[in-house]
């Protein structure tokens, strides 16, 4: 092969490599933008998981969280499981951000995905409690409504009750803060005052 032919081969090879590099930069093709963005969040009513099994052997506290009760607030919904490795990675970021915005009209909830309350309790003991309630989703009905592909996924719902952001895989504190600040700066729609269940573990 002469240098000239090698040069021609490189003219083919280099754009091919550039194409592949572009494919990498473009991001994951499987992540299609969620059709739920800017749409009203699917409402739900979920039982709050008890931090320890109650004396009568129940896994729930008896309280129920209804998303529509939080209109006028920012809600961060984090789907997670004890068997999911990235969930462990994002755990501290969620806990810190939740603490930072506790008194500023931002409500955090964890939603347990395909897991048992027992395993979740052990997980929370190991990782340090979340500092906000975890909700049980029997039969993954809410996960299906929200179009979950896996865990972790985190949704941020604005004061108007619309989903403003969906984050795949582990979230960072920076991602959460940026979006929450943006949503808090928006004017609040006229809405009924929310009632937050007083639960903490």
């Amino acid at each position: 092969m002469s240098w000239k032919r090698a040069g021609i081969a490189m003219l083919v090879g280099i754009p091919l490599l550039m194409l592949l590099a572009w494919g990498m930069v473009r991001g994951d093709p499987r992540i299609i933008p969620s059709p739920l963005i800017d749409q009203p969040a699917p409402d739900f009513e979920l039982p709050v998981m008890a931090p320890a099994r109650t004396p009568d052997g129940e896994d729930v506290t008896g309280e129920v969280v209804r998303l529509s009760d939080h209109l006028g607030e920012v809600v961060v919904l984090n789907f997670y499981a004890s068997w999911c490795v990235p969930c462990r990675i994002e755990h501290p970021a969620l806990v810190r951000t939740a603490a930072r915005y506790r008194d500023r009209g931002v409500q955090f909830y964890g939603v347990v995905y395909q897991d048992t309350p027992q395993a979740i309790r052990t997980y929370l003991r190991q990782m340090g409690a979340k500092g906000y309630p975890s909700l049980l989703d029997p039969g993954q009905r809410v996960a299906i409504d929200w179009g979950l592909a896996g865990v972790p996924e985190t949704f941020i719902v604005g004061k108007d009750g619309r989903i403003s952001k969906k984050i795949f895989s582990a979230v960072t504190e920076q991602e959460l803060v940026t979006e929450i600040e943006r949503l808090l700066a928006e004017p609040s729609p006229a809405a009924a005052p929310a009632s937050t269940p007083e639960v903490s573990f």
Partner: peptide, 14 residues
Amino acid sequence: FMGIMLLGSLALLA
């Protein structure tokens, strides 16, 4: 890695 191998091989061939 692929880029290095491709360019290196072509140069060697030439």
